[in-house]
Design a protein around this nucleic acid. Structure first.
Lengths: 197, 197, 197, 197
DNA sequence: CATGAATGAGTTTTCATTCAT
DNA sequence: GATGAATGAAAACTCATTCAT
């Protein structure tokens, strides 16, 4: 491996360590020591690869977002039959989001955590803002083909993502049994796609 | 003032101080010192009124929830004309939630923060769980009269609250301009009530 | 009850509370609050009856010492047959000390604690010094009748008390089974009295 | 110096600092700050080398006990002529204990302090228990050769150490003049060894 | 006498970050 | 690059004592 890629690999390793830590404790209660221990590297070394705790967090957030964007691309390719048809695209995209994102408990935990940080951290907020905007636009690009009314389709796109994020949060906060998010989302998906078509 | 009410007043004063602090910093970064300063009381005294930081937080959460429940009761009373009709009740309740809760930026910030804490704090999670369950049930009690299908109405109630919480979160994270949550909610309300009727 | 005796009774009550506390925690780790709670009185009131924590401790020590001196007097009176004979007196005194003091686990704990405080607290040390000196002299007054050599009898008196205090300490620190202090003291008593006679 | 030995040296340095502090104040009144100041190191660093105050204390106790065990070994070697003869061994051991331990005022202070801590601290008690048991057994191993009766020799060994610890305590609590522990111990030693022979 | 609220200094411990090797 | 020792500030919490009522 080249110098550069060893560096990158190390950074990845540290970000994965942060990921593990965030599944156990909130970011503020996760110490550099914890992260270094999870990454099996020296505590001081962490500051060689990342300027400080915030820098690591920002890189981590970016890393997670890029990973899921890539996963989404792969998902689309694997279902490549019918991306032309808006209805089909929406169904496939919806499937992805539900199963890989909204119902992914680990990811939900981490994003709820990140929302909290974003409130008072401009850089984190900006990263989130971009990611959500992009996600909403991806949906909207297709939705507008079906709905025509641009304002309306934008509102629906936003509302759809807001709803999914709300369910994601509820899947962590509420009783799993009382909530049954899988059924709820499936039901919703049918209604939604039907209403479009 | 009686001894008892001095106690209660002081506790309220401290909880209000925490409220102010939470509008500036996340809970984990808010020190007991900060809260005491905001409450203009001695730092040690805070531990006289609350066992520890967590105890204060739990009391604060309860306090906020009770406050908004009381506000909702008042709101209903002030619009007392027509609570019999489900449609009217839903419209009035929706108005309250939108304007007093979902579009209340301070409250949104604080609840996003609390969601994050709830992930790893059982007691906080339990408080949230109860509050959301109660909220959902309040809606469902009325909704079931219109929809009949009990499972369906439950799912819609959950979905509705999830959507509102998602919008609440977006109103903090996304650009206010791009989002325009007031318009979005108004639009949604119309569609929603229409679809019921 | 007169004013004065109500006062005294309250003071006694507080000292008994300290006694209870000292059976659970070292003095330094016992807070005024703990003591007040054990005495079932208000925390502030404690400072009305005793100047401060040290004052309470000094009074408590005096109180315990006087109690055991009184108990000893009673004991002697109850065995009044034969205090004239030095051997008999020594036997009776030895019995008292063994059973009421050296083998009294609660008292042992408390005195070990007090020794520790005495090291760096002049007033406490002085109280202990007086009590031990008096005890040693009580023994010596009788012992010198049997032994004649005044220096020798003083040394034996000191050594005897030192030995008993050492056993008292061991009864707390060492395994009760391995130590068997009752048997050890009984054995010692026999040897000792025999050696005198 | 190697990494490892720097660690050990630092730990020793901190334990010596605790030693100095314990000659001025009881452990409970000695703050981490005091100890760090005495060791001339940063307060935070102390927690790098020892988990917490109790951990430091336990290590310190072990350190002192090991030091005196080593000193005793050296002492025996330096008097190597005659360890075969029980009488000679006892005399030499007795000399060591009297001069290096029982009459060592600093050590006496520290052990009285440790006794007090041991009452309510299981780990400290266990360390003391082991040390005293070992000391008693060392004496008993030789004593049993002279006395034959195993039970009797065990009782004498325990009693002997109890007596020495009692004298150690008295040397701190009582007037030095009235006590004259050197003379007392010398006298006792003669009587004791004579009684065996 | 009695209450409990108030004070403020002090305690242990944690931690992000820096630095010498 | 890598190590782990060092720093210093800050955190939560405790507590003896005082004071107004």
């Amino acid at each position: 491996m080249s110098r550069k890629s060893v560096q990158l690999e190390r950074r990845r390793q540290i970000m994965e360590a942060l990921h593990e830590c965030l599944l156990e404790k909130p970011f503020d209660q996760t110490s550099i020591k914890d992260i270094a221990a999870a990454a099996k590297i020296n505590q001081g070394l962490l500051h060689y690869y990342f300027e400080n705790k915030e820098d690591l967090l920002l890189n981590y957030i970016e890393y997670v977002i890029q990973r899921y964007k890539a996963l989404f691309e792969d998902w689309l390719l694997s279902k490549s039959q019918s991306l032309q048809d808006p209805q089909d695209f929406l169904r496939i995209a919806f499937d992805f989001v539900c199963h890989k994102i909204t119902l992914n408990r680990d990811l939900s935990k981490i994003f709820i955590e990140i929302w909290g940080i974003a409130i008072y951290n401009r850089k984190v907020k900006e990263k989130l803002r971009k990611a959500y905007t992009e996600w909403i636009q991806t949906i909207n690009t297709t939705l507008v083909k079906v709905i025509q009314d641009k304002n309306k389709s934008t509102r629906i796109s936003i509302g759809l993502v807001a709803f999914l994020e709300g369910i994601s949060m509820f899947s962590i906060i509420l009783d799993k049994k009382a909530l049954d998010p899988e059924a709820l989302l499936k039901d919703f998906q049918e209604q939604f796609l039907q209403s479009l078509g």
